[in-house]
Each structure stands twice: as C-alpha cells, then as structure tokens.
Amino acid sequence: MYHSKITVMLRPSILDPQGKAVEHAIHSLGVASVHNVRMGKRIEFDVDAATRQEAERITEEACKKLLANPVMEDYTFTLEERK
C-alpha cells in the first residue's frame, strides 16, 4: 500500500486573494518580513497498489480529473510506501 500526499496550489499567475488577506493579517501581527503568502490545499489518501508506478498513475489520475483544476491550479505529490 502507498500513501499519497498531494498539494494543490493556485497557479503563480493567478491572484490569490485569500493569501493576500492572510498576508495582511500577518503584517498586522507586527511581522513585516513575510511576503508572497499563497494558500492551497493538502489532500492525503492511501492507495492499494502493488507498485510505486501504479500508485503514481492512480494519484495522477485523481489529481487530473478531480483534485486540481488545471485552468487555475497546479499539483504536486509525494508517495510513501506503507506496510
């Protein structure tokens, strides 16, 4: 079995108003050194797959078809083998 950890982020060219609002809030804390706050999503699941390659393919398919919308989002993931 494998465990997928997926990160979905708005593409760099897309304005992230949520991230902006959080950035303003961080600045309100008196922390002025933080910039370029971006917010995204973290999705995790277990995959029943015999090989890493198969787990990768399944995760990739879930990302492409559902978890990320390629018009506005990019995704990355890591896989970890679990007993």
């Binding site: 897309i14 304005l15 108003p17 949520q18 919308n69 506005m72």
Partner: peptide
C-alpha cells in the same frame, strides 16, 4: 473557471 470574488 470561477475564482473567489476579488473582494473576498
């Protein structure tokens, strides 16, 4: 796609 309103 629809993004969050710019006003949030």
């Amino acid at each position: 796609v629809m993004l969050r309103n710019r006003s949030l």
